[in-house]
Amino acid sequence: MTKQLHHHHRVSRSYGFSLIEVVLAIGIFLVTVLALVGLLGPTLQSVDEVEKTDEISSVVNTINAFLQNSPEIAPEGSRFNAIYTRVNSNDFAAILVFRAYDDNDVISLKIGFIGEGEPKIGVEDVTDGSIVKAAGTIYRAVLTASSVIPQEYLNETKPDRNGDGIYTLKKPIADYLEGSFAMEVRIFAEEPSLSFKINNNIRANIEPIFTYNTAIVR
């Protein structure tokens, strides 16, 4: 008796993705991409804000060091008296802070007062009309009397300020008996250009980018 051997062959089938699975996969991918793009915007904004904060902090430190220590403010006299008198005479004093190229294309810090007095910053430090010397943003710091100054030395009755939104001094340096002079410092940012102009004004109608208080001692 002859036995017949029957061989059973298994047929393997490879299954592809259905249309629904493909659509779902694409949908999940797009949602993930959109979520990442959404996170990227705030991240870049945060980096920009941190850089601006660091820059303002650097400007504040530069201004404070200048007011406290610069020998150029009053080479042969009292730095305290010079700063007080400058603020008192015009109701404010303005300082410019920026970096600029010198004749050898080396960038250095520029800081000084606008108007009379030393050290003085002029438009020629920003541009000569043919090239812009300033290397980046120009910061203008406006110094005025602070609200912490005793009432007897102010023209305005606290907490009311004058029409320019500031306090002004009513006594000359000879009659100012305090051991320190407190100032409100408002910082404004300007971009340099060939037509840049330096106006010694209080910029009352412009919003400062930062405001703080500082003081100098006798």
Rank of each mutant, 00 (worst) to 15 (best):
N90L: 14
L67V: 09
V106K: 09
K52W: 08
T62N: 02
A65F: 13
V60K: 15
N81I: 02
F92Q: 05
A94K: 13
E55Q: 13
N61P: 00
A74I: 13
T53W: 06
D103A: 10
S108T: 13
I56F: 08
R79V: 01
V106Q: 09
D105Y: 12
E55H: 07
P75M: 09
S57N: 15
V106P: 00
N90S: 14
N90V: 08
I73F: 01
S70V: 06
K110I: 15
N61I: 09
K110S: 07
Y101Q: 13
R79W: 00
S58G: 12
S78N: 12
V106A: 11
F80W: 07
L96Y: 15
D54A: 15
R79N: 03
I73A: 02
V59H: 05
V97Q: 02
D105Q: 15
T53D: 09
E55T: 05
D48V: 01
N64L: 11
P71V: 03
V50R: 11
L96F: 10
A65T: 15
E49L: 06
I83D: 01
S89C: 02
D102G: 07
V59P: 08
V59R: 08
E51V: 01
I83S: 01
T62V: 10
A100D: 06
N69P: 00
V50D: 02
D91V: 03
S57I: 01
G77L: 00
A93E: 13
S108W: 09
N90M: 12
F80R: 04
E49D: 14
K52D: 04
A100I: 06
F66L: 00
E72W: 01
F98L: 08
S89F: 09
R79D: 02
S108C: 03
E72F: 10
I63S: 00
T62P: 00
E55I: 04
N104E: 14
S78C: 11
A93W: 03
D105H: 12
P71E: 05
V87R: 04
N61T: 06
Y84E: 04
E72K: 07
N90F: 12
V47T: 15
L109G: 01
V47N: 06
E51Q: 12
P71N: 11
D54R: 11
V47S: 12
N61F: 07
I56T: 13
R86Q: 14
N90W: 04
D91A: 13
N81C: 00
D48H: 09
D105S: 14
D105N: 15
F98H: 04
Q68I: 12
T62K: 06
N104Y: 11
I95A: 03
A74V: 11
V47D: 02
I73Y: 08
V60P: 10
R86W: 05
V87G: 03
S78G: 11
F92H: 08
A82F: 09
I63H: 01
S78H: 06
D54C: 06
F66G: 00
N64I: 11
S57Y: 07
I63V: 14
A74Q: 07
I73T: 07
V50W: 01
V60D: 02
S108M: 10
I56S: 10
S89L: 14
E49S: 14
I83P: 07
I83L: 14
F98R: 03
E76A: 07
S58M: 13
T62C: 04
N88Q: 15
D102K: 04
S89Q: 12
N64P: 03
V50M: 04
I107L: 08
F80C: 01
I95N: 03
